[in-house]
């Protein structure tokens, strides 16, 4: 219990200190910025409060796209990793392809995806899917294959078949890696969704709001969108953490 309080208290104290420093112009002084370049927290908060319904609607659009894309992408990534594990000879090629996809700059593909998909939502999901696939495939692959020495020999010695080995040995072993990938993917899926909105054929979403307002010198409005995006990401991240804690009670990292 005491630990839990500490868990909350420290970052909270740090955060409050940070916000106070920001509010009272410490950052402005250090970085030599004017309030109209970097709005202070109270201004951001009041702007956000005034535009909350619109911000939440935009947030819903972005986050739902990011989540759907992340789920599809993670699933595909895991399947590729599993294929590469089952068929090490031919399947590994899939890993190479995924890594290659990971290297394609998504921003560049966004306008092309505009042509492939007529709605902004489908385009967003497609971009996020591609982005999330690679991190999951790489992590899941290393989880499925970095086994304890001799454990596979042990499985062979009890005449376990490939499928049993996968279920009883590889899958549990890959769980921590899968959660690591999910944590990375939460962050990158939101970023990818936002970036794709910079180019999407729609005027909703956090990405459009950030870009549009920053260009128009509506700094406070732009920042309030950034705040909403960050909060949404943190909440999703916390959900993953909670699931991980329950699923990985046995693992050293949770002790």
């Amino acid at each position: 219990m005491k630990n839990k309080v500490k868990n909350l208290l420290w970052p909270l104290a740090f955060g409050i200190a940070l916000i106070l420093a920001w509010q009272f112009g410490v950052f402005h002084k250090i970085l030599d910025l004017k309030p109209f370049q970097l709005p202070v927290p109270t201004e951001i908060a009041s702007t956000l409060a005034a535009n909350l319904p619109k911000a939440l609607k935009d947030c819903g659009v972005t986050i739902s796209g990011a989540l759907i894309g992340m789920i599809i992408g993670s699933f595909m990534g895991f399947m590729i990793a599993a294929m590469a594990t089952f068929f090490p000879k031919w399947g590994y090629g899939g890993m190479i392809v995924v890594t290659a996809l990971n290297a394609v700059p998504i921003v560049a593909l966004s306008p092309i995806m505009n042509l492939w998909f007529s709605t902004g939502m489908a385009q967003k999901i497609a971009v996020v899917t591609v982005v999330c696939m690679a991190a999951m495939a790489i992590n899941a692959y290393s989880g499925l294959n970095n086994l304890n020495p001799y454990s596979i020999d042990l499985m062979h010695s009890v005449a376990a078949n490939k499928w049993t080995i996968f279920r009883k040995l590889r899958l549990p072993n890959s769980l921590p890696h899968i959660f690591t990938a999910s944590k990375i993917n939460i962050a990158s899926s939101i970023i990818a969704a936002i970036i794709s909105e910079y180019f999407a054929a729609s005027t909703s979403g956090l990405g459009f709001g950030i870009k549009d307002n920053l260009r128009k010198a509506e700094m406070a409005m732009g920042w309030s969108y950034i705040v909403v995006a960050s909060l949404a990401g943190v909440i999703l991240y916390c959900i993953i953490l909670l699931v991980e804690r329950d699923a990985l009670k046995w693992h050293a990292s949770q002790k």
Binding site: G15, L33, L38, A187, G207
Partner: peptide
């Protein structure tokens, strides 16, 4: 552990800030 408690949540927050949105701000700084 204290360090982790302080820094980790902010690591996550830092990743949620879209870098392209940050770009003009980074130029500013």
């Amino acid at each position: 552990k204290t360090m982790e408690r302080i820094a980790f949540p902010y690591l996550i927050v830092s990743q949620m800030i879209p870098v392209l949105g940050l770009a003009p701000i980074i130029f500013n700084i």
